[in-house]
Structures are given as structure tokens and as C-alpha cells.
Amino acid sequence: MLPNYGFIGLLLLAAVAFAVAPLVVVALVAPRKWSVEKGEAYECGVRTTGETWVRFRIQYYVYALLFLVFDIETIFLYPWAVSYLGLAEAGFGLFVLVEMVVFLVLLAVALVFAWAAGDLRWV
């Protein structure tokens, strides 16, 4: 397993190098003519006004929260899916299936709750 992840680490470093290398080439090759206008934010040619890093609505946060709930669910669903066949062959099929249906129903209740509360409505 560790050699596998050794390769993944190598791939990660190589990918970073692969992304940065063209920029190095650009720094050597491309022209550099700096002007104040070039450094401005491009907002359709209109001078930018006010603070850019504004506050955002709570809606985004609610989506992230829901996402977290469903993301953690994969921790449960994936091992279940891996183990299901083996446990079914061992004779626990119905039990394991019902377990997962109960779990999915719990998740669905969360989804229905969010839906009914109007949190799934984009504004």
C-alpha cells in the first residue's frame, strides 16, 4: 500500500511542478509592461467601488451544512456497499439490507426536512 501512495505523492509533486512550469516559461518569454490600469480589477471596464470581499448570505452556509451531512454519509454507505455481498453470502443479507434502508430513510428525513423548511430553495 505504501508504494502506491509513494506514487501518489510523486504524482502530486509532479502535478504542482507541471502547473508551475509554464508560468516560469512565461516569466522568461512573455513581455512585461506594467501599468496601473492593468492591475485594476476587471469589472466590465467600470472602476470598482466599495469593498470586494463582501458578506454573503446564510444560504450558502446552509448548503454547505447539508453537503457535510451527505458527505459523511458516504463514510457509512461505501463500507456497507463493500461488505454487503460478503455478509449476504454469510446469511445476513436481509438484516444488512434493512439496516441500510433504515439509514437511507433517516437521510431522506433530513432531506425532506430541509426541503419542507425551504432551505433547498435558491435565492
Binding site: 456497507w80 460478503g86 439496516e99
Partner: peptide, 13 residues
């Protein structure tokens, strides 16, 4: 993953 699944389904769920 299989070990986690087996443990979860047979013990903790």
C-alpha cells in the same frame, strides 16, 4: 473498507 463495513454492519450499527 471491507473491514470497516463488516464491523459497522455486524457490531455498531
Amino acid at each position: 473498507p471491507r473491514a470497516v463495513g463488516d464491523e459497522l454492519m455486524t457490531r455498531y450499527v
